[in-house]
Write a protein that binds this DNA or RNA. Structure first.
Lengths: 182, 182
DNA sequence: ACGGACATGTAAGCAGTTACATGATTGC
DNA sequence: GCAATCATGTAACTGCTTACATGTCCGT
């Protein structure tokens, strides 16, 4: 049976600090977006569900007249989170439309494939820029007393390494086509 | 609106050769599995749907008493496939449980994270072996007259490059922990 | 005054998986 | 005789997204 992993992403975010749904969303955009995202329509109902399950509690807070729900993890929530953290990683399905189109490249004119490769190249450069930003402003320097710094740096380096490998590979692919159209 | 991409994966497979559902499944396992898969419960109903939509036709064939449905792409099917091939790639959601657990690494004892890293390392080595097999037995030599060879080799190289980058990065991560436990 | 960020949600619907279900053929 | 592979499907369920819906606050 497949279980919902949004639970754990949210519990992890709340583990040592209280947040509103909106803050969790923003936080994810700045940190895990490259390997984990939650949409609004997934995040807010899941927070309600976590509360119903006793994993978090909520407190009504106000900023002026705007109502905000601040969530706080419970002991049960912490336990469920740690249990999940200890379990082996489940292999998920990967679906990469870009590679699928490339795989079928022989069925269309070369220009189309070159277009897709260039678009992918552009996406990778944008990611690279984003990683540079995160490195400069978000991830604290290691050796400081933030215990998260080490792990945040690791996931960041993973992204950087993946992007570098992709860029190199794309260049090689594009060169093949350049040769065939002299 | 999100459209179902299984359609195109299947149409692509049928583009220049007729296959049964089972053969498509096997074919995918040997070629696109690393970036595209279809489960049984997705493949067979989709073939029926493609037939209802006039994208493929089917012919009943027999191997002994076992009934097999051999599918053949129609002109409409080819056109829809080419239209999809020409469109820009849509960015899909990526969800990587392994990286999510690593990101939250500070909340659990280091051994757990080391365990996950080692497991990932093992998965990558297995993938590497699989790629070596595909390279040796599945992907035809380029320069031969198979127009697919070039593109199959490209997607394969992509996988190989990704795995190499991952392995290097995992080694770096593991070294960090080795230093902290002298 | 207005735009962008803050803030939270619902409804509808397709997507996709797991588990279930069945039977023939081939090779050892 | 038995296991693996060939071969095709359904039912039930959860997951997840898009589109919709609403209103406040803050800075310029």
């Amino acid at each position: 049976m497949k279980i919902n992993k949004s639970r754990y992403a949210i519990l992890g975010m709340l583990y040592d600090k209280d947040y509103t749904g909106y803050e969790i969303k923003k936080y994810m955009q700045e940190s895990t977006a490259n390997f984990w995202q939650e949409s609004d329509a997934s995040l807010y109902p899941m927070l309600k569900k976590l509360e119903a399950d006793g994993m978090v509690t909520s407190k009504n807070s106000f900023r002026g007249k705007t109502e905000r729900m601040v969530y706080h993890i419970t002991q049960s929530g912490k336990e469920e989170f740690i249990y999940w953290m200890s379990k082996d990683v489940e292999r998920g399905t990967r679906r990469d439309e870009f590679l699928l189109k490339l795989f079928f490249g022989a069925h269309v004119p070369q220009e189309i494939i070159v277009k897709h490769l260039k678009a992918q190249h552009k996406r990778m450069l944008e990611l690279q820029k984003k990683f540079a930003y995160i490195k400069a402003y978000i991830v604290p320097e290691p050796a400081q007393d933030n215990p998260h710094a080490l792990f945040w740096a690791m996931t960041l380096k993973n992204g950087i390494a993946q992007v570098e490998a992709q860029l190199k590979w794309i260049d090689e692919c594009l060169n093949v086509f350049k040769k065939s159209i002299p």
